[in-house]
């Protein structure tokens, strides 16, 4: 009898505690973000099209847009994000030490960064390929024509190693000069110190504008590498990683499903597609499952737009960079972008 009463009491207590609050895995990062009221997002020092501060201090770019969408999803307001510009060398320590909640700064996913730096890449928001910019007068048509050239590069970047490996494999000799910052390397290239500067196709499209006479230079079309880039978090705090991953997936899914900032209200109210309804919180409780409000992706799409809108505005045809979608097109349209289903 005693045992029965005890068991009953325990069951009641368990039920009561389960009902009183939805049980969520602890997430110190999310708690801290909600307490301070904004997201700390680490971005590039200044890369037009990806993360670039204008003369009023307003940040724009593809990587910046992602952080804004994240702020809209977590805090309901895309403006509640503080951008911290980081150099190639600062980025990992700043993330590892917890000064920023995440990095969104066109950094390439690599094995050793994932395995030995304690970093997790939460998806791919830009498929980049490394190439070179050279003076038109050199008549170089591809990277193989650069035998004997001096190449300026940012120290510690994947570009440094890619270039070194690529030329070594082909028995070509280049002199690689390592600068602390991308901008230093560009300035030295522009001053004539190097025959070429190397960076991703997308990055170069924006950085080209920093040269004194952009028209005198040509970007080699054949990329020598494939550099997938995306938002990065540190190890630990699974729930925060979940949020970072699925907001990115959400912006891609929205494009896939035809949800845009213009039609998001109408879609939420009347779409018959249940994936759309789950994405926008009209059905199910996906937001609440992660400890967010249920209209998390609604806010993100409404305030920032889907991936395609963001791409066109920052690096695509609606921007100064005029990049083709290329690999960054949805897989259904011949690109590489896809997202797991919202089910």
């Amino acid at each position: 009898m005693k045992t029965m009463i005890l068991t009953a009491a325990a069951t009641v207590a368990m039920g009561a505690s389960l009902a009183s609050a939805q049980q969520l895995a602890p997430s110190p990062t999310l708690d801290a973000i909600k307490a301070r009221g904004h997201i700390e997002c680490g971005v590039h020092l200044g890369l037009p099209g990806f993360s670039f501060a204008d003369d009023k201090g307003e940040w724009t770019g593809l990587d910046v847009d992602y952080c804004k969408a994240l702020a809209a999803a977590v805090l309901g307001d895309a403006k509640k994000v503080k951008f911290t510009p980081t150099s190639v060398q600062q980025r990992w320590p700043i993330l590892q030490s917890g000064q920023v909640d995440l990095l969104s700064r066109n950094s390439t996913i690599t094995f050793s960064r994932n395995a030995s730096l304690g970093l997790n890449f939460q998806g791919i928001n830009f498929y980049e390929g490394q190439t070179f910019i050279v003076r038109k007068a050199t008549n170089a048509k591809s990277a193989a024509d650069l035998d004997g050239a001096s190449v300026c590069v940012a120290a510690g970047s994947t570009e440094e190693k890619n270039a070194s490996d690529w030329f070594l494999e082909r028995n070509l000799k280049v002199t690689i000069t390592n600068f602390q910052k991308n901008d230093d390397a560009i300035a030295a290239y522009d001053a004539g110190r190097c025959d070429a500067y190397t960076a991703g196709v997308g990055a170069l499209a924006g950085q080209r504008a920093k040269l004194k006479v952009p028209g005198d230079h040509v970007i080699l079309t054949q990329p020598i590498s494939n550099d997938p880039q995306g938002p990065v978090t540190r190890w630990g705090d699974e729930r925060w990683q979940l949020v970072v991953r699925w907001v990115l997936n959400g912006t891609i899914a929205a494009e896939m499903l035809g949800v845009t900032s213009a039609n998001v209200d109408q879609m939420k109210a009347s779409s018959k597609n249940s994936e759309v309804r789950r994405l926008l919180g009209a059905e199910g409780n996906f937001g609440a499952t992660m400890g967010l409000s249920n209209d998390w992706m609604y806010n993100a799409i409404k305030q920032v737009g889907n991936y395609g809108e963001s791409f066109e505005r920052t690096v695509g045809m609606g921007s100064g960079l005029k990049l083709e979608r290329g690999q960054n097109q949805l897989w259904t349209k011949g690109g590489l972008l896809f997202t797991p289903p919202f089910q």
Binding site: C152, E160, Q180
Partner: peptide, 22 residues
């Protein structure tokens, strides 16, 4: 600052970024 390969540039720049062992 000007890509002179001294111990700061090589070791604290390139090597640190490749290994992450700050």
């Amino acid at each position: 600052a000007i890509a002179y390969p001294d111990v700061v540039s090589l070791f604290m720049g390139s090597a640190l970024n490749n290994t992450g062992q700050a």
